[in-house]
Amino acid sequence: MFNLVNMFNIRLLKKSLPALVASVALLTSVSFASLTYAGQEYISTLRGEVHLNKEPQAPAIAKVENTDEKRQRAYPMQPPTIPHKVDNYPVNKNANKCMSCHARDRAEESQAPMVSVTHFMNRDGNFLAEISPRRYFCNQCHVVQLDSKPLVENEFQDVYNIIGEKK
């Protein structure tokens, strides 16, 4: 402030003070106006129609499907989704609960599908006796199924649709 005053000739400042005040007032009102304007003109985001300084109502937590009904794969190499709950199933260095049913030698007793043979392959393409370490953490690729609506429209086309269109 001190510098500002010194920069101007005091007399000049006295003369132009009303103009200065007016322009500051104008500027602030313009910027306020543009703020409210931005608030009114709604731009669709994932947060929904809620002003930035308000907390939106969180959607209800979707329930995990536990029906054992398999879903269709969206594309040939899609890791299948898990058709049941996996609450508190440990997958760590001590234990792998998934493999206690889906392992090759557990499938008969559990009647769970055995993991795909690709899971026994290491990155050099050699087959191992056990699942490859790079496949150990099941939940890196496989997720549970939720009964929830997609937040944005999905325009994904199944490969069959595309082939059909081309024919």
């Binding site: 508190n88 440990p90 260095k93 001590n94 234990a95 792998n96 609960k97 493999m99 206690s100 557990r106 007793e109």
Partner: peptide
């Protein structure tokens, strides 16, 4: 097993 606490190393435990 392990419904109430974390599991120890399960190597060699039947069914794991």
């Amino acid at each position: 097993k392990g419904i109430a606490h974390h599991l120890p190393d399960m190597k060699g435990v039947e069914g794991w």
